[in-house]
Simulated scan of single mutants.
Amino acid sequence: MHLLSFLRKSKTSNETSSLYGLDHAALNLPVPPPSMWMNLGYWKDTTDFPTACAALLDQVLITASLLDENGDATSHSTEKRLRLLDVGIGCGDQSVRILGYKRRMHGGVAANDNSDLDGNIKDMTAPLFDSYVGITSIPVQAQFAKQRIESSKHSQSNLRAQIFCADAANPLSWDTKLKTSLSAAPPSHETEENWLLALDTLYHFSPSRAPLFKYTHSTLHASIMAFDLLLPTPKPSFWARLLLRILCLFAGTPYTNFLTQDEYTALLVDAGYDLSKIIFRDISDDVFHGIAGYINSREEVLKAYGLGGSKGMKKYGGAGKLFGWWARTGVVKGFIIVARA
């Protein structure tokens, strides 16, 4: 109390107002935060960032027919095994959500264990994926993700979840432990499905997505589900593409990763995927307006609590303007892509 009194007497009236305003919010913020999501989000029915980020993940799995329109896992036989390689997991929020997905199963179980009084087999629930391998290239995020998963309520029922720090863009660089954690045997279409998930990350891959796509098809025999950024057809004007190229230099993102739908399709077909089994779903209208508006309003909210003006928020302020440009002009589009093996 004596220290606070001294500070109060030694400040100007404006500074005193700030000290005894709202900026003590910094002393109340939970560390670590309850969520550490980081993607562009799906903003159709929300203005909340973590909710939008989780919704984007759900929309990818809905498009892949692994979740229904309500976000519930679709029904599978108990004989069916689903395995997932998740690249670009960030701090593990999407991992925890994925490990919490439950699927309804039917058939293939002993009647004395899972039957009603009339001997009919009852539906069961189990984790959607029988095994989960997550990859991030940032060591501190890999460690944080491991801690998040271990402390989550789903950890005990998902003991096969594994997290690795590796460059997902270069499968040849993966160590033996990571490679052996993934099944190299072609799955039986009746009993097994392998999937690659890439949520809002592939456009960062250097030099391109091609090595991962080829490895996914030829070695993992896996289907792909992703949210990615594409160029519209026809391509934007020369000046718009030049500006995008300059922004990519600052962001450290290869400009050559920005492809049209036809070019992206050719990349998948070259990796071995069947043209008839590739789906593109444009969700741009529910992505860019929402994330731009959220970032632009976030600075004002933080300022009210004396937390605005930080270096980090200035960086995201620039991103907000970029996403707003994409929303207004359609220079870049947000697509969900599914390619079945």
Rank of each mutant, 00 (worst) to 15 (best):
E79S: 07
E79G: 00
K80S: 04
R81C: 08
R81W: 02
L82C: 11
R83Y: 15
L84Y: 00
L85T: 02
L85H: 01
D86A: 07
D86Y: 09
I89S: 02
I89H: 05
G90Q: 01
G90F: 07
D93V: 07
Q94S: 00
Q94P: 10
S95V: 15
V96W: 05
V96L: 01
R97Q: 12
K102M: 09
R103P: 09
R104I: 07
R104Y: 02
M105T: 14
M105L: 08
M105A: 02
M105Y: 03
H106G: 09
H106V: 14
G107L: 06
G108E: 08
V109N: 09
A111S: 08
N112V: 04
N112Y: 11
N112S: 03
S115I: 00
L117C: 09
D118Q: 10
I121Y: 09
M124P: 11
M124W: 03
A126E: 06
P127F: 07
P127K: 08
P127H: 00
L128C: 03
F129M: 05
F129Q: 13
F129R: 15
D130K: 06
D130M: 03
D130W: 00
Y132T: 04
Y132K: 13
V133H: 11
V133R: 13
I135L: 01
T136N: 06
P139S: 11
P139K: 02
Q141N: 06
Q141R: 07
A142R: 13
A142M: 10
A145T: 04
A145V: 08
Q147T: 04
R148G: 07
R148K: 09
I149N: 02
H154Y: 15
S155Q: 10
Q156D: 14
S157R: 13
S157W: 05
S157Q: 14
N158I: 03
L159P: 09
L159M: 06
L159W: 00
L159V: 01
A161F: 13
I163S: 01
C165Q: 02
A166F: 04
D167G: 10
A169C: 01
N170H: 15
D175M: 00
K177C: 04
K177D: 15
L178R: 01
L178T: 00
L178V: 02
T180G: 05
T180M: 05
S181G: 04
L182H: 03
L182Y: 03
L182F: 11
S183K: 13
S183Q: 13
A184T: 15
A184N: 15
A184D: 14
A185W: 06
A185F: 07
P186W: 08
P187K: 09
H189E: 12
H189N: 14
E190F: 00
E190V: 05
T191D: 14
